[in-house]
């Protein structure tokens, strides 16, 4: 039995006929759409490498069946930059060396972007650490990740202040 689904992936509508309902969003992105920026670290929701945004919320794409997300609006790491212009979070990750091997990085960045949209952590480093704890980094780049988020948050706070002034 096949299932027709349509998704918006990084702003573009994509229609598929899924021949297998077992396909997760992660495997759909990686193996069927060749959007391999999103990584598979554990495939069981225990590492965060597969983090993407669905309708603006960060989730583990390894534990999401594609067929159940018909109609979803998906943002992956490939859709974050505007051409050569990096998203501020991407630039901050480079500046603060928020990664080493880079494998968990797409998930970390999507998680950090999602976290800022959730607006639960603000500029409190302790909250940021807690809210980013769903993304494991075996290289141990956590300090740089927190610094990167703090920088982007500071930029956003400043912009808000300018607007309200």
């Amino acid at each position: 039995m096949t299932h027709s689904i349509s998704l918006t992936v990084n702003g573009a509508r994509r229609d598929f006929v899924l021949d297998d309902p077992r396909v997760t969003l992660l495997d759909l992105l990686r193996e069927r759409l060749q959007l391999t920026g999103t990584k598979k670290g554990c495939d069981r929701g225990q590492c965060g490498a597969c983090t993407i945004l669905i309708d603006g919320k960060r989730i583990n794409s390894c534990l999401a069946l594609a067929v159940s997300h018909d109609g979803a609006d998906i943002l992956t790491i490939e859709g974050v930059a505007r051409g050569d212009q990096l998203h501020p979070m991407q630039a901050a990750f480079i500046a603060h060396d928020g990664f080493q091997c880079g494998f968990c990085t797409p998930g970390q960045i999507m998680s950090a972007i999602g976290m800022m949209q959730e607006a639960q952590a603000g500029n409190d480093p302790e909250r940021i650490r807690e809210c980013m704890s769903g993304n494991l980094c075996r290289c141990g780049a956590y300090a740089g990740i927190v610094d990167a988020v703090l920088e982007v948050q500071a930029g956003q706070d400043e912009a808000k202040q300018r607007l309200s002034a």
Binding site: A81, L86, Q90, F93
Partner: peptide, 20 residues
Amino acid sequence: TRRDGVLKVKGQATYAADNH
């Protein structure tokens, strides 16, 4: 800063399993 940084933050650094 890392010369492979842009590739890594854009998800464009190709790890083995990313090949098809």
